[in-house]
Design a protein around this nucleic acid. Structure first.
Length: 310
DNA sequence: ATCGTGACGGTTGAG
DNA sequence: CTCTCAACCGTCACG
């Protein structure tokens, strides 16, 4: 699992103080290869954050595709999945790179258009209406508003090109209604100071939402703030209190300090969903300017709170 | 002794 | 529900 951000931060911090990587690795008990990697990444992208683990290419079953599948099914209820696939290609809805697999189409037919035959009359009557939307927008997890992201290119992100576009910097969200705080009954702690932990995953899942990507931090770390040794100043996006070196046992969450003074990197940025709506996933009434902070806190907070609770 | 880098095994989530 | 795939991670070993 990725090192906690506090340690990643510490690595960069110590490097900026001129401490040799070998000493850093010894001091923090992290392999020198890891230190080297984190520093190299930081030099290249300006971000200390790990990349998003897991996942896969953007979903091909976009609302448009689903809509077309629905239409095909309405017109010909006996149509086969492979025929739908062919038609998606023929009609130019998809190309050969993003056409859903037959099994995906079958799943769509089963799960989303399963009772179409019963309601086909009704649907055809109100075909101009948008399909019923779930509580969360379909495909809300992956939305690629930017051509760069839409291209979904593989391979390393070129320097200067955000790994995740600003809108994508909105972490993937999980539709779970469970939160660490709910489960552990420590909401009062996390509510203090508007340090919110959004419900994303249960502790046993321990999978916090990804955090804004490198591009996010690149945007936040200006070149003028580069440290003498060439590294961008850590303090430009993590304020002094955050540098409080090491988590002390007394702290509820050592990483909570991330939210201590957010002005450096959250001010003025209203993190927005791709749709342009303010970022308030799962009814976490986080002001836009606090959204990122909240996410960050959620990631680290849930991690450490869970750990401390065990 | 130090450090960059590739191989490796593990984890994760979408399809 | 399970499997596959592709992304990432940190560690290790090599040069």
């Amino acid at each position: 699992r990725p090192l906690p951000n506090a340690i990643r931060l510490r690595i960069v911090e110590l490097a900026q103080l001129g401490i040799r990587p070998c000493d850093i690795s010894r001091q923090l008990r992290v392999s020198h290869g890891c230190v080297s990697k984190i520093l190299a990444r930081y030099n290249e992208t300006g971000s200390i954050l790990p990349g998003a683990i897991g996942g896969s290419k953007p979903r091909v079953t976009t609302p448009t595709v689903v809509k077309h599948i629905r239409t095909y099914k309405q017109r010909d209820p006996g149509i086969f999945a492979w025929e739908i696939r062919d038609r998606l290609l023929a009609d130019g809805v998809c190309d050969k790179y993003n056409v859903p697999s037959v099994s995906s189409i079958s799943r769509i037919l089963r799960n989303k258009i399963g009772n179409l035959s019963q309601q086909s009359h009704y649907d055809s009557y109100k075909q101009h209406q948008p399909p019923p939307q779930p509580a969360l927008p379909y495909n809300h997890i992956y939305s690629y508003p930017s051509p760069i992201a839409a291209a979904g290119g593989k391979g390393p992100t070129a320097p200067g090109v955000p790994a995740i576009p600003s809108a994508m910097a909105m972490p993937r969200t999980w539709p779970s209604s469970h939160s660490v705080t709910d489960i552990l009954g420590i909401r009062s702690i996390t509510d203090q100071g508007k340090t919110l932990i959004c419900p994303h995953r249960t502790p046993e899942g321990s999978r916090a939402p990804p955090v804004p990507g490198a591009g996010t931090f690149r945007r936040l770390v200006s070149k003028q703030e580069a440290a003498p040794n060439g590294l961008p100043a850590v303090s430009s996006f993590v304020s002094a209190p955050t540098m409080a070196p090491y988590p002390t046992p007394a702290q509820v969450s050592p990483y909570m300090t991330y939210s201590a003074t957010p002005s450096g990197y959250v001010a003025g940025h209203g993190w927005q969903h791709a749709g342009g709506t303010p970022l308030t996933p799962h009814n976490c009434d986080i002001p836009a300017s606090l959204a990122f902070k909240g996410m960050q806190t959620a990631r680290e907070g849930s991690h450490s709170v869970t750990a401390s609770a065990l």
